[in-house]
Design a protein around this nucleic acid. Structure first.
Lengths: 208, 208
DNA sequence: TTAAAATGCGAGCGTTCGCTCACATTGTCT
DNA sequence: AGACAATGTGAGCGAACGCTCGCATTTTAA
């Protein structure tokens, strides 16, 4: 399997000075990652780009993997906090409306620094964060399943769990694929319409 | 950007002996890749696993990247030949039936050496084969769009192109996600049913 | 049979890069 | 002011690994 290096941070910054250092290192990591890719990302390059010595870098990150893992963690948590909060809020709305909101939400989430998102997505398995990602996936999945189960009688579905799997996969995938392969489609409102249509027709909510 | 090494093979094997060598090298690459991941795949390890000297390996592959690229090429072409052929055949069937066939087909395609498929999927962008992948994607996309356009009057869709994008993304994604995260679902016939339902309801073909 | 081409071999060269360590500087506390 | 902790520095060590090259063996063809 993958070389599963320990990715926990080495030491937590106490003073303001060092917190700035850690921040500089992380943003430098992001820049180098986007410009050069993971393979050509060297710890020395990151240190230089951050305007920090290589020694300082190793005060806070035990190895190269931990560096990217930390960045990924931050990215995942940021992204997910937004999504989960919104998902909860949306649960109150009529289902047709909720569907559209979720689609829009997913698109918005992918539109924040898509380049970084792409690189990070590609590196997830190498950095050993698949588990965490799967965990969050599971949470989304269950929230949607709950939402569907609560309104089962308005819907044309039998198994809310299975339906949730299908829906979460679908929405995430359409947006993800659009973001990676056809970024212009993300700006196309018709993509939102069409994806929403897919969802509502599947759920048996469609007016037309 | 990525270190875009030349990935073209160095020399084509002429005799039977060398063809066997190249084959051994490629299957060894697959084995090592699955067992150790790309990062821990070394050319020396591949050579050893193939029962071939490192010198011989470099007779046919200019570098490590080319090795993985060749394997990936083979995998992509194999997978896609099957899919495209079947897609053509299915185009004759009634749409409801065709939908189910395509879903089943996609699942079958992912069930062939899923471990290798997973590793390769994760490694694709780093080997510079994204372009080829996108090309094949485009072909699928256009075939489906053509199929939808031809029977537009039976369907509840406006833009066959957009609908094709949505459908191809959807089916691929559900299967892909199931294969990577929840392999047991691939054996669950209800997944096929449910995905087919998603497709047919979206297209306005559903009986129920 | 024999020359040339194709193929196979593997010790080890050269480079890259992750990472340490001994020391310097800055901040905190009393 | 002095002492101790926190933080910052960067030359360079060591190991890993991609890849070459000179030579051995096998196959082809005349």
């Amino acid at each position: 399997m993958q070389r599963q290096t320990r990715t926990a941070p080495r030491k937590r910054p106490r003073q303001e000075r060092s917190r700035a250092t850690v921040d500089a290192i992380l943003s430098a990591t992001a820049r180098v990652l986007v410009r050069h890719g993971y393979d050509d990302l060297t710890t020395n390059a990151v240190a230089t780009a951050a305007g920090v010595s290589i020694g300082s870098l190793y005060q806070y990150f035990p190895n190269k993997t931990a560096l990217v893992a930390a960045l990924l963690d931050r990215h995942i948590e940021d992204m997910n906090a937004a999504v989960l909060a919104e998902l909860t809020r949306v649960a109150q709305l009529p289902l047709a409306e909720a569907s559209r909101c979720v689609v829009e939400l997913t698109i918005r989430a992918h539109a924040v620094d898509p380049e970084l998102h792409r690189v990070l997505t590609e590196q997830v398995p190498r950095v050993g964060k698949l588990a965490r990602l799967r965990e969050l996936d599971e949470i989304c999945h269950r929230m949607v399943a709950g939402l569907l189960a609560a309104r089962k009688d308005e819907l044309a579905i039998r198994d809310p769990d299975l339906a949730a799997f299908v829906l979460v996969s679908t929405i995430e995938a359409i947006v993800h694929r659009a973001a990676l392969l056809y970024p212009h489609r993300l700006r196309d409102p018709r993509l939102i319409d069409e994806t929403t249509l897919l969802v509502t027709r599947y759920l048996g909510l469609a007016a037309n």
